[in-house]
Design a protein around this nucleic acid. Structure first.
Lengths: 190, 190
DNA sequence: CGGATCGTTGATCAACTTCAACGGTCGTGG
DNA sequence: CCACGACCGTTGAAGTTGATCAACGATCCG
């Protein structure tokens, strides 16, 4: 069975006969490493479900440095929510860190899907709620922990994830420079 | 007409005859300045809609310093989403900054309300989506701007809000010390 | 094999914190 | 209505954390 349907079923009940109808709203997309799903300056009218692979959301700051603000692995949804919600131009990029398989749905189709299958709207209400909880926790860690503690925390919490991404992306995600991460690692090994 | 109903109607259509039914799920609560709706160590089984007034969400860090992570003014929802969603004990406090009037609903009642009035679940899906967009933007400002720039940005964007809160709460919200904010203000005035 | 990409190292520097002390103001009880 | 105490904002000195810059080494991939 499809990953997405399995994920939806973790949160809401859907009839077996509705599964195909729900899936028909989505388009499956394969994307190579380093390819883009969204580039700064474009409208962001779709949301992506990661079936397999790894995506990142980043922006480029005024100094030209890429700042990674989100990752998405299997069973995660990703988009530039600010642009998606407001129908404005995005100032973010979405790029594949690994070769990835996605399910894509446009904003309009998603709204049609909600109307036809209210259970899916409930599913989104639930995963949105969990996401708000997750972001709240992340903001807290960012606030409460020093950079060193944040690195230790994150790398002990998600060791398998650390393996999948290059170090400079982790540094960017945690909000510091690759040089500093390098220094931290040396300090922590000894 | 009630504030909450007006707010819901900004996002979804509801029948006039449903308004009373929806409101009957909520309890109106008045709370004095400095009083608490939630204390660290309690379960957080309710969510609050601010009819009038101003709330803050904060935690106490390992040094004993209060860290304010959210404010809620009129027409905003507030809770500790991490604790609310997971049914775990909260590590946050919710306190009234001003005398406030709230509408309160428990998690169970909210779920009953969703089932009885799907339009309200749609309303929550929509405001959750906007909230995720807002938090994403906030995380970006936090990342992109220096403390000085963050202060300038915030105080020009929400001048009337700045009036309502003491300076040490603003410093806490922006993630720095009251002393540093004081220094910034002096520097910026001259 | 060759070039680009990624991680490392060390020196210098800026941003922000910490701590301690002081002055003003607000609200509350006498 | 006044006086007192708690709370809040300010100031300055010293200390930390993490950024920046430049250069080098390793590795991966075409």
């Amino acid at each position: 069975m499809n990953n997405l349907i399995a994920h939806i079923k973790r949160f809401v009940k859907i009839d077996a006969e509705d599964e195909a109808s729900i899936l028909s709203f989505f388009e499956e997309v394969d994307i190579r490493r380093k390819d883009f799903l969204l580039k700064e300056g474009q409208y962001c009218s779709a949301i992506y479900f990661v079936v397999k692979g790894l995506l990142r959301l980043y922006f480029v700051d005024e100094k030209g440095v890429e700042q990674t603000t989100d990752f998405a692995i299997e069973n995660w949804w990703l988009t530039d929510f600010a642009a998606f919600d407001s129908n404005k131009i995005s100032s973010y990029n979405i790029q594949a860190v690994e070769r990835s398989t996605l399910l894509v749905i446009s904003k309009e189709k998603l709204e049609q899907l909600f109307t036809l299958h209210p259970a899916v709207e409930r599913y989104f209400r639930i995963i949105y709620q969990r996401r708000i909880a997750a972001v709240q926790m992340r903001l807290r860690y960012f606030r409460e922990l020093s950079r060193e503690e944040a690195y230790i925390h994150f790398s002990t919490l998600f060791p398998e994830f650390i393996q999948r991404i290059p170090q400079y992306l982790l540094a960017s995600y945690l909000g510091f420079t690759p040089e500093y991460l390098s220094e931290l690692r040396r300090k922590l090994i000894s």
